[in-house]
Each structure stands twice: as structure tokens, then as C-alpha cells.
């Protein structure tokens, strides 16, 4: 029986020491376990409460003053041991940190604007009364906004023979040079249906169905005529810098090739490729 009581007392003392060592000294029960070891264990004096004081008095608490001091360090207890030093600490104004780091200056690099598209096209142009002939041309687009773009184009073709020339046998209404058909257009386009097209599971390409219209000039049959062009097209971008087009346009102008002023409609269907710059 006596042995059992000794064991119980020993284990109780050990338990108290362990509790104090784990920083529980601040709790009132730890105060009672005033073993010397527990006083050191309140190295808990280096707790935020001490550094908050920031005063020498606070660090004095770190002395083997016992667990009691450690417990009170969370309050103003620093003054109890620190005496005057602790009192002084209360008068200190807070230190304002002045960073000695030089401000980083950023030079803004030029951000390239890829709004300009340059390209070529090829297709069929139906020159009224002169048959459908191949047409090729160059064009430049400037994308003003995501909705609107300017387009300038220059194309050339060569007129065939009218049915009268074919049937009459040998009659030529136009000379060889006069059959050359060249034009330029300045147009405004509107991306009416922007979107994406999907190929398989992994590839998506931005696209747009657009309407386009403008003015220009046609040089044909030895005369130049004011032209109005309008049509629609479809653009798809396999990459950010490449663009493929399909275009259908009508070139409308008045001519007097047959000595009578008349309005002609010249339909053109082309495919093209462009590169963004």
C-alpha cells in the first residue's frame, strides 16, 4: 500500500512537470507545479507576449524567475520583474519600418498589334457578256475592332469572248489589250457571325462570316469605271497568324462598251490565304 501511494505521488509530479514543459505554464494549474524544471520550461517566456513588449524587461522574464513570471508575461507582468525597464517600454512610440529597397521600375515592352492581314486570292470572275474567267488578286485588311475591318484589294482577270463573237466567226469587239480586266476596291467589312469551328475532339479554330461592301474602280475595255462591290465571305484561322478565306462578291459598274450605258453585274467567287502582321 505504501508503495502504491509513492508511485501515485511520483506519477503526479511527473505529469505536472510534463504539462509545464509543453507551455501550459500559463494556465493557473501550472503555477502550482513550481518545480525548477518547470521554470525553465516556460521558455514560453520567449512567447509573442515577450516580443510584443519588445523591452529589456520582457527579456528579463527569461531569467530563472520561475514559472510564475512566465505565466504573467502574457499580461503586464513584465513590469513585476522588469521593474523600471518594463515601465519604459510602455512609453516607446511604435517603430515605423522604412524599407531600404529601391522601387522596381518597369519598362513597358511594346505589345505587338496583329491587326493587319496581307494575302492573295484566286477564283472565278464572271464578266458580264464576256464569260467566266480565272481571277487573281492581292488584298490587305485592317481590323479596326472585333466587329469591323477595312479591306483594300486589287485583282486582275482577262475577259473571254461574247457569244456574238463566238457565233459570228472572227469578229472581235475588243483588242487583246482591252480584254485585260483590273480593279481595286476599298471596302468596309462587318463580322456578322463570329464563332469557332471544330475538327475532331481537339482542334478548334476561330472563324467569322462577314459582310463586305465598298467602292472602287474597274479598268476594262479601254475605260475606267466607278465600281460598287458587295458580298459576303467566310474566314477561318487555323493559327493566330494564318487566315483562310472564301469570298463571293458582286462588282457593279456602268459601262458603254456596246455604245449604250448599262449597269453590269460581275460576280466573283474566290478562295484566299492571308497572314496576320
Amino acid at each position: 500500500m505504501e508503495t502504491r501511494i509513492r508511485i501515485l505521488l511520483l506519477s503526479a509530479a511527473l505529469g505536472a512537470a510534463v504539462l509545464a514543459g509543453t507551455g501550459c505554464a500559463a494556465h493557473p494549474p501550472a503555477r502550482t507545479a513550481a518545480a525548477p524544471g518547470a521554470g525553465n520550461g516556460t521558455g514560453g517566456n520567449g512567447s509573442p507576449a515577450v516580443t510584443d513588449n519588445g523591452s529589456p524587461g520582457g527579456t528579463d522574464n527569461g531569467s530563472p524567475g520561475g514559472a510564475g513570471n512566465g505565466g504573467s508575461s502574457g499580461t503586464n507582468g513584465a513590469g513585476a520583474n522588469g521593474g523600471d525597464a518594463g515601465g519604459d517600454s510602455g512609453d516607446e512610440s511604435p517603430v515605423i519600418v522604412q524599407p531600404q529597397v529601391q522601387r522596381r521600375s518597369v519598362t513597358v515592352p511594346h505589345i505587338g498589334a496583329r491587326d493587319v492581314e496581307l494575302g492573295a486570292y484566286y477564283g472565278i470572275l464572271s464578266i458580264e457578256d464576256f464569260g467566266a474567267q480565272p481571277v487573281q488578286g492581292l488584298k490587305a485588311d485592317y481590323h479596326i475592332t472585333e466587329d469591323f475591318f477595312f479591306e483594300g484589294s486589287y485583282g486582275q482577270s482577262r475577259a473571254g469572248e461574247t457569244s456574238y463573237e463566238l457565233l459570228s466567226g472572227g469578229v472581235q469587239l475588243l483588242s487583246n489589250a482591252e480584254r485585260r480586266f483590273t480593279y481595286y476596291n476599298l471596302s468596309l467589312g462587318y463580322n456578322m457571325l463570329p464563332g469557332e469551328i471544330f475538327i475532331g475532339h481537339t482542334v478548334a479554330m476561330t472563324s467569322a462570316l462577314y459582310m463586305i461592301g465598298g467602292i472602287g474602280s474597274v479598268d476594262f475595255a479601254g475605260e475606267q469605271n466607278f465600281t460598287v462591290n458587295f458580298g459576303a465571305g467566310f474566314r477561318v484561322l487555323p493559327t493566330d497568324w494564318l487566315s483562310l478565306h472564301v469570298d463571293v462578291q458582286d462588282l457593279v459598274f456602268r459601262d458603254d462598251i456596246f455604245s449604250v450605258y448599262r449597269l453590269t453585274n460581275n460576280l466573283q467567287a474566290t478562295v484566299g490565304i492571308s497572314v496576320f502582321f
Binding site: 513597358v108 505589345i111 505587338g112 496583329r114 469557332e196 482542334v203 478548334a204 479554330m205 493559327t239 493566330d240
Partner: peptide, 18 residues
Amino acid sequence: MCLALAPAPARAGRAPLQ
């Protein structure tokens, strides 16, 4: 999606704006 497409060829060797 588009995001999966190969990026455009690099231009000048300057670091892009962050």
C-alpha cells in the same frame, strides 16, 4: 479548344509584359 493550338511563333526576343 483554341487554347490547345500551338502558340504563334515568337517574335523579338524581348520578355513579354507581365
